[in-house]
Computed example of a mutant assay.
Amino acid sequence: MAQHATIVGKVEFRPGEGALMRIPQGPVEIATSRSEATLSWVDGEAHGATAMPLSDLNRYLAKGAITLARS
Score class of each variant (00 low, 15 high):
Ala31Tyr: 03
Arg70Met: 05
Thr32Arg: 14
Pro27Cys: 01
Glu36Met: 03
Ala46Arg: 15
Ile23Leu: 09
Ala49Asp: 10
Ser33Val: 06
Arg14Ala: 02
Val28Leu: 12
Val8Leu: 09
Ser35Gln: 08
Leu39Lys: 01
Thr50Tyr: 11
Leu39Met: 09
Met52Phe: 09
Ala31Cys: 03
Ser55Val: 08
Gly18Met: 07
Thr6Ala: 09
Pro53Arg: 14
Gln25Phe: 00
Ile7Cys: 06
Val11Phe: 04
Ala62Met: 02
Asn58Asp: 15
Glu36Gly: 03
Ala69Pro: 00
Ser71Lys: 11
Arg14Asn: 01
Leu68Ile: 14
Ser33Phe: 07
Ala62Thr: 06
Glu45His: 10
Ser71Cys: 02
Ala62Tyr: 04
Glu17Gly: 09
Ile66Gln: 00
Ile23Arg: 00
Ala65Asp: 15
Lys63Gly: 07
Thr32Gln: 14
Lys10Glu: 14
Glu29Cys: 01
His4Gln: 13
Gly26Asn: 05
Met21Thr: 04
Ala69Trp: 04
Val28Gly: 10
Val11Ala: 08
His47Lys: 15
Ala69Glu: 13
Ala46Asp: 14
Gly16Tyr: 12
Pro24Val: 06
Arg34Ser: 14
Leu57Arg: 14
Thr67Asp: 08
Pro27Tyr: 01
Arg14His: 01
Ser33Met: 03
Thr38Trp: 09
Pro15Ser: 12
Ile30Phe: 05
Ala69Thr: 09
Gly48Ser: 07
Trp41Gly: 07
Ser33Ile: 07
Leu61Ala: 06
Ile66Asp: 07
Val42Asn: 14
Trp41Thr: 06
Gly26Trp: 04
Leu54Asn: 02
